[in-house]
Design a protein around this nucleic acid. Structure first.
Lengths: 158, 158
DNA sequence: TTTTACAATGTATATTTTTTCAATATTTTA
DNA sequence: TAAAATATTGAAAAAATATACATTGTAAAA
């Protein structure tokens, strides 16, 4: 009972640095770290802390802290070997444009990955800190681009 | 199948205007409105829409749209734009003193927030760089102070 | 101190949510 | 248009999450 505050703190740390897909996964980590608790307690903690479970945009789920739109990016690598879910926020299409949102700092690197594919269908990319604009050639369809991006964003939707 | 887009739109409307505590409740509303679907489809919709289920701070749960910021709702009177979870380290009580540890640099600002409450129970605060000393009036109990700090430090919720 | 109230937690269970699988429907391609 | 590829969905099963209840620990009051 004494270590509740400490546990709460630890949960925050884990959630902000690791992608958590279920309470079971988080529970395992906490148990490994030496905390002694059950899933029931974890459920109560998450409820009180207002930590939310939300679709991750890549076919899975992710737990997020309140206000974690500006989550810090602990994963320095952005190469294709890193699961997309570590940097990916959203993808949107409008006319000949595709806008990909990433966690802060990732856009430039991911844009390079996209450029490296040298796809005919892509006229070019422009990247800021957390947003990539992909400009498509006329007549290129959404699905076509998704296929090109598939190994950068393994599962866009499922 | 044609009405999927319409249904998605309706879900957004409902979520933003009504407190939804479970998919079952949302499903009932949609059925009453004439939409024909099952809970399984709803689960998929919510996942794709990245709608989250989160503790409502009053003992229940609530579904929220991606844009809605949970921390803001919680910290209504907190002038700082920084969510509590980003600065809070620990809180301790001893006699008429309460010591709050923060991440470096935050103590002063948080102390201002505490002062702004102008609570009778608090005689004053002294802040360093990462520590706040809250001096309580005689007879003020721990629980009482926690109630006062509740919307500055949401974590100590209970 | 002793009593009392309340908070924290685990266990077991209930509830809710997610997914698998199969059937259709829709869209794209040829 | 017909065939092929994709997407959407429901029903049922599986998985995940939440809670009722009982117990124990902690703090406040007397």
């Amino acid at each position: 009972m004494k270590n509740k505050i400490e546990r709460i703190q630890k949960i925050k740390e884990i959630i902000s640095s690791t992608k958590i897909e279920s309470q079971g996964q988080l529970l395992d980590i906490l148990l490994e770290e030496g905390y002694d608790l059950t899933q029931a307690t974890l459920s109560r903690d998450l409820k009180r802390m207002r930590i939310a479970k939300v679709g991750d945009g890549c076919g899975g789920y992710s737990y997020i802290l309140p206000g974690q739109n500006v989550a810090k990016t602990l994963n320095t690598s952005h190469s294709s070997s890193v699961p997309a879910s570590n940097w990916f926020i959203s993808i949107d299409f409008s006319g000949q444009f595709c806008v990909i949102k990433t966690r802060p700092g990732y856009a430039g690197g991911i844009a390079l990955d996209i450029d490296a594919k040298e796809a005919d269908q892509i006229m070019g990319t422009i990247a800021g800190d957390d947003t990539i604009l992909v400009i498509l050639r006329g007549g290129v369809r959404k699905k076509e681009l998704i296929n090109i991006l598939r190994d950068i964003i393994p599962i866009i939707d499922k």
